[in-house]
Amino acid sequence: MATTNNMTLNLKIWRQKNQTSEGKLVDYRVENVSPDMSFLEMIDVLNDQLVRKGEDTVAFDHDCREGICGMCSMMINGKAHGGFKNTTTCQVHMRLYKDGDTVVIEPFRAKAFPIVKDLTVDRGAIDKVMAAGGFITANTGNAPDANAMLIPKPVADEAMDAAACIGCGACVASCPNGSGMLFMGAKVSQLALLPQGQPESPKRALNMVYTHDTLGFGNCTTHAECEATCPKGISIEHIARMNREYLKAAFTYHEKNRSEGAG
């Protein structure tokens, strides 16, 4: 056989049957890992081996495998998505590791993210926060004229930066306080920057923060570990903008003064 650059890796993977059972790190050895494989493909190879041996495969979340869906949540060697700059797990390639490396893989952990099985966690808390206010009111029917609403380029850029959040939960998993401020800040900030987000702006801040606080997320203490691990490079400036939005809303919003709907 021709010589290849293929590697052998020693994995320690968190195995846990279900939410209530005890979990533990289990050792695995994967051979023939190509440096061109993605991290997820490497786990596919392991799972293929496990199936052939009749063992239970490692459960892990994944979907798009192109860095846009935010499903591939895991802590690799203690860092969310492996700790590489602006990279999701599915975009981590095995050439970043060396033959014989030991790689520890744990699920994202936070009180708000219960473990479902192995590396799969329930990040539904993020969806609940989003559903509480991460939307705008728009007319259905014909597509609106793209240039009807003028938005200065720098503002549009900033809103786009915030909109880059894929809801992966790395910010929560790597926060020493298990706080959801970064993804929530990104959404509140994105919509607060744009004219389309204005009608719901105060209610959005109030409802999203209220929902966040009821789901077991912690509070921000400005460690900025979230910003350091976010695969989309979301800045904590967006948390500050949310804090302003929330302050404004808490002291000026009055249900009775507002008529809902078209008017």
Partner: peptide, 22 residues
Amino acid sequence: LNIENRQARGKYTLKTRTGRGT
């Protein structure tokens, strides 16, 4: 807030600090 934060955070077997935050 500190008591809540202690309960909210995940407990990992490895250190999770990146060196670029905390």
